[in-house]
Amino acid sequence: MKLSTILNFVILIFFTLLFVNDFFPDTAIAAMLTKKIILLILVGLVIIQLAFDKGRYKRLSKKAYIGLTLYTVGLWIVLTLLGGQSQIGLSFTSPLFYIIVVLLGLDLIRLSRQTKRDQTEEKAK
């Protein structure tokens, strides 16, 4: 397995821990790993990832973008349904949630149109 893939997976794990820590601040995990520590680890991992990629810009595939978006929104919903309450105000019943979902939907539509346009240009060549 490539180091880049492992780093991405570890970043996703710490991102999930950050969400769990926000929704359930009184758990044992939250006592051991505070939000500041998790954020420092995430920043460090992202810096390592950027250094590993040597400044090359890698665009996320459409599938990966959709998967990451659905994972984040799904995590948000599941943690709320499990009885967690976000310390920074994220909640399933918040208008901010619906605004973000609409914006992500519009961005996915934009990405889909861009992909179709790129495929059409490739066929024309």
Score class of each variant (00 low, 15 high):
Leu18Ser: 11
Ala51Trp: 14
Leu3Thr: 06
Phe14Asp: 03
Ser91Asp: 10
Leu96Cys: 02
Met1Glu: 08
Ile37Gly: 04
Leu3Val: 14
Tyr57Ala: 15
Ile66Gly: 04
Thr5Val: 13
Ala64Trp: 06
Lys123Arg: 14
Thr27Val: 06
Gly67Gln: 05
Leu103Asn: 00
Ile66His: 05
Thr34Arg: 09
Gly105Asp: 14
Ile99His: 02
Ile77Val: 12
Ile99Val: 15
Leu104Pro: 01
Gly74Phe: 08
Tyr71Ser: 03
Gly83Ala: 07
Ala124Ser: 11
Gly89Lys: 00
Ala30Pro: 05
Thr69Pro: 02
Leu70Thr: 13
Gln87Glu: 11
Val10Gly: 07
Ala51Cys: 13
Arg117Phe: 06
Gly55Lys: 03
Ile77Trp: 07
Phe14His: 03
Leu104Asp: 01
Phe24Ile: 00
Tyr98Gly: 03
Pro95Leu: 12
Gln85Asn: 06
Leu18Val: 02
Thr5Lys: 12
Ile41Cys: 10
Thr16Cys: 14
Leu42Trp: 08
Gln49Pro: 01
Leu50Val: 14
Met32Ala: 08
Thr72Lys: 04
Leu96Gln: 14
Leu111Ile: 12
Phe9Lys: 00
Arg117Ile: 12
Gln49Ile: 08
Met1Tyr: 15
Ile38Tyr: 11
Gly55Phe: 06
Met1Cys: 08
Asp107Pro: 02
Ile6Thr: 12
Gln87Leu: 09
Gly89Leu: 09
Gly44Gln: 07
Thr34Met: 05
Pro95Ile: 13
Leu104Gly: 06
Phe9Ser: 04
Ala64Asp: 10
Asp118Glu: 15
Leu90Ala: 07
Pro25Gln: 12
Lys123Leu: 15
Lys35Trp: 13
Ile41His: 10
Val102Cys: 08
Leu42Thr: 10
Arg59Ala: 14
Gly55Val: 15
Lys36His: 08
Thr34Tyr: 03
Ile29Tyr: 02
Val101Glu: 05
Leu70Asn: 03
Pro95Met: 08
Gly67Cys: 08
Asp118Val: 10
Phe24Gly: 10
Asp107Thr: 14
Ile29Gly: 04
Arg59Tyr: 05
Ala28Leu: 12
Pro95Val: 13
Asp26Trp: 01
Tyr71Lys: 02
Arg56Gly: 02
Val73Ser: 04
Leu68Glu: 00
Thr72Val: 15
Asp53Tyr: 10
Ser94Thr: 08
Lys54Pro: 02
Phe52Tyr: 13
Ser94Asp: 15
Tyr98Lys: 07
Leu111Phe: 09
Ile13Gln: 04
Phe14Glu: 03
Arg113Ala: 12
Ile29Thr: 13
Asn8Trp: 01
Ala30Thr: 14
Asp53Ile: 07
Val73Gly: 00
Leu106Pro: 03
Leu60Asn: 04
Pro95Cys: 04
Gln114Pro: 00
Ala51Asn: 13
Asp22Lys: 06
Lys2Gln: 13
Val43Thr: 14
Val78Trp: 10
Ser91Leu: 03
Leu111Arg: 11
Glu121Arg: 09
Ile88Ser: 12
Gly84Glu: 09
Gln119Leu: 13
Leu7Ile: 07
Arg113Val: 06
Thr27Phe: 01
Arg59Ser: 15
Leu90Met: 07
Ala51Thr: 11
Thr16Ala: 12
Leu104Tyr: 02
Leu12Ser: 12
Leu12Val: 09
Leu70Cys: 13
Ser86Trp: 00
Phe92Trp: 08
Pro25Asn: 13
Ala124Asp: 07
Val43Gly: 11
Ser61Pro: 01
Gly74Ile: 05
Asn8Asp: 10
Ala30His: 01
